[in-house]
Design a protein around this nucleic acid. Structure first.
Lengths: 200, 200
DNA sequence: CATGTTGCGCAACAGATGTTATGCGATGGG
DNA sequence: CCCATCGCATAACATCTGTTGCGCAACATG
């Protein structure tokens, strides 16, 4: 047998190149040659590891989601208040550093791309539902007083929307949404969600 | 002089075709031929009214923004509470009917596209700032009690993010975010923003 | 009716893109 | 030392894309 190459690692490296290309050129600028250039190889190598462009995108998306999930799972479980635990998880959805900025950008493009690909939409649906479920548990644990707050689902959906919108705004105009502002808005939103009682 | 054609109207019709193509194929599927097919004409006509693809996109974007602004300006000014007035304006950013769904989809694509085009980013910045300013005035008028609420800017930013995220989620998966849910979340968010007092 | 101007359909062009096939070097087991 | 097999670079190919130019039909004006 001739030399053996770490198949999985090569695929991950190429996927990383896909992210970089998407981040600076968008999905419309994502071409096999651009990916090859970003990865420092030839298009032949890309096609050698991925049957076609669709498979390339699917793998890049899969690895991205895996990476985000791993980052959240790897959060240090300190002796914090339930509210701090909620904040720590929610914060992971915001582009607060270079790594998460890249993730947020690519994630935004992939999310919009689900509109034109039913298969992607299905995956997105599952992923999104899981995310909502996770935040729901954290919110329930962090809300004070009564065993079940009013309109828990609505509060979670408001938080999710706030996170997505904040990430989107920060992605399209990073200068106007520095990390400080993002954190402030998230803190405020948590205050409102956890303390406010619906009047109507 | 031979027959005269309403230049502006033709351009608007073509821009409408651009929206339809973007809505069902995304920006990557936006080609001159697809636009021509959607408009029921030839590519020659498209290029006759627009110098190049960039001009085509710019005009489509411009008309779209104008249309959204006009819709908000045309809102009936009834004798409502300040809170209802705020809700009426904020609701315009949500894809609650077919027309606004199309707008929200195209708007999402254009917003992401600003990342790769500095000129578009500048326009987006101005438009976004104007939107924040308008909502700020409405929130200030709707907040009860003190003349100036705590962290007014943060509350507005949270509202804006919630609206954007809600629209994005409804755009990517309309089935999971029916108009009822959108309205419920927006009502709740307004309750939280207008009534909640920050503790920290 | 003649005519010049306008509207725009049609087609050709160069460049880019996804995909496929060919071929060569390298490498580790026999 | 040999060579089978894997890794991948190169290039050819058909298709699609934006852009340009040609040319004809329609029509208001003289």
């Amino acid at each position: 047998m001739p030399r053996q190459v770490d198949h999985a690692q090569r695929r991950s490296e190429i996927s990383s190149a896909v992210w970089r290309v998407v981040c600076e050129s968008g999905l419309e600028g994502l071409t096999l040659r651009a990916v090859a250039a970003a990865a420092g190889c030839t298009t032949g190598m890309v096609t050698h590891y991925f049957r076609d462009k669709k498979a390339l995108l699917a793998h890049a998306r899969s690895v991205m989601h895996r990476r985000m999930a791993d980052r959240i799972d790897a959060l240090p479980v300190r002796d914090e208040s339930p509210r701090d635990r909620l904040y720590a998880v929610a914060e992971q959805a915001l582009p607060l550093d270079e790594e998460r900025h890249l993730e947020a950008v690519v994630w935004s493009y992939f999310q919009l791309a689900t509109r034109t690909d039913p298969e992607l939409l299905r995956e997105h649906f599952v992923s999104h539902a899981s995310w909502v479920r996770r935040l729901t548990a954290l919110v329930r644990a962090a809300v004070p007083g009564e065993p079940e707050p009013q309109d828990l689902e609505g509060r979670v959906r408001a938080l999710v929307a706030c996170l997505d919108g904040l990430a989107l705004n920060a992605v399209t105009d990073p200068g106007a949404y520095p990390p400080d502002l993002q954190r402030r808005v998230l803190e405020l939103q948590l205050d409102l969600i956890l303390e406010g009682n619906r009047s109507l």
